[in-house]
Nucleic acid binder design. Sequence first.
RNA 1: GCACCGUUCGUCUAGGGGUUAGGACACCGCUCUUUCACAGCGGUAACACGGGUUCAAUUCCCGUACGGUGUACCA
Length: 482
Amino acid sequence: MSVRVRFAPSPTGFLHIGSLRTALYNYLFAKHHGGTCILRIEDTDRTRLVDGAIEEQISSLAWAGVVFDEGPHVGGNYGPYTQSERFDLYRTYGMQLVDNGTAYYAFDTSEELDAMRQRQQAAGIAPKYDRSSMRNQYTLGEQETARLLADGAAHVIRLKVPLTTDVRFHDEIRGDVVVNGREIDDQILLKSDGFPTYHLANVVDDHLMEITHVIRAEEWLPSTPKHVLLYEAFGWNAPTFAHVPLLLNPDRSKMSKRHGDVMVRDFAAKGYFPDALVNFVALCGWHPGGDNEKFSMEDLIAAFSLERVNKAGAVFDYKKLEWMNGEYLKSRDPHELATALMPTLEQRGFVYIEPSFVADVITLLRERVTFLKDIAEFGDYLFGDTLCELTSDQIATITGNESVLAALRAFHAGFSAATLTDEATFKAHAQASAEQAGIKIGAMMKPLRLVLSHRDVGADLYRTLQLIGAERCSQRLASFLS
RNA sequence: GCACCGUUCGUCUAGGGGUUAGGACACCGCUCUUUCACAGCGGUAACACGGGUUCAAUUCCCGUACGGUGUACCA
């Protein structure tokens, strides 16, 4: 049987980084096994829908390289892939359970349910639907139930959980899990608005779409027994379950904003490379063994297995992610990077710049920054002639010492395009200029850098001057010295 | 509260009955260097605790502690 997995988000907002990882694991698992990866939209909570969320999530996923073989946007033989378009299906299947005695009608109002929970809390017992005292098919009797239904009374369908039998299932990551029936609530399957809850819709769709492996976040582990019960009630075989560990905040709670970016689009906007993010996030909770940490999508697909997914949650380390991004920045082809940087440069007003020049600048500066777009800022003195303001400290560094100024004048005086033909010539000229003013070459370099770039730090000066070009260097020296 | 899941350096992790417990990020130091970086070299730093089982346990079992998740007509 070929592998079929699904990623099933709710369109309630932007794509969360944790969701990306769950989607990624599904994708990797499917591709590793030559299987099918499906996108299904779980929009059964009509109150939480967010406009445009589906499109945003799909595009965030696509940005990261997670694409689907089936889904609302690409079609497939198991559609529709949006649950609201499968509305009638769930009622039909829900009724099937009522008919076979594994689910039942209940008529309680939310106030009555609240009161029940309060009573239970006061009595110190776990809040759970009390089938024997609430208003449902069993306490009301068949006749009254039929009458209420005929009157169109608001009602829900609840799962009839066996009172004391153990529910057991195997999780690929966690092993065998056993939960006693008395711990499991009579979950609502069909809400009074006619929509299914997650649990019903999820099980029905996973079965109908022939899902073989349910790979989802650990937060679903506690409700899995309900799903197992549902499969049994329908007489269906349950898929294989695999609950992946959570992504965590530094305080080890479930990852959320507050501690940093959590939406995939935030990472994209910040300038992370999609493959760096994917590489990093794949390694949060999974490791193929060995010392390698760089994995392309192809590598990940080849290496991925559920057996090597960890059990414990992983704190999301933004620092290490930055390092990872830097690694990608350093290993990428400069010409490709130049193309990617062009829009940013244009935004900053640097137009008519040769891509090959940009590539040279990237090669020169990329070891010093984390993000590609940082180069537009960090190398502004290379791209344009409007330099940032010098601080008073910086001015003092240059003009505070008469010898330094003398060295700069000497440097300027003998400076020409020929000075930059090779590094030795440049060095010799700088050396001579410093000596003439009676200072060491080291004492002149920083002031020289400041005059030409208005920055304290930067790349190797010889290469920097070369890229600025002899003419612009001369102009900058002249305008400062005058 | 109850249920479930988890616990190797600060963080991500490798490992696995006998190891100097390995790597990476971060941090510190050194080297290189006109600066900042990069790179190279080196360093600090971990098997939560208590019982078993065993010749031997960080590794297997059981408890405890701690943490997380769940406990909705949300997913």
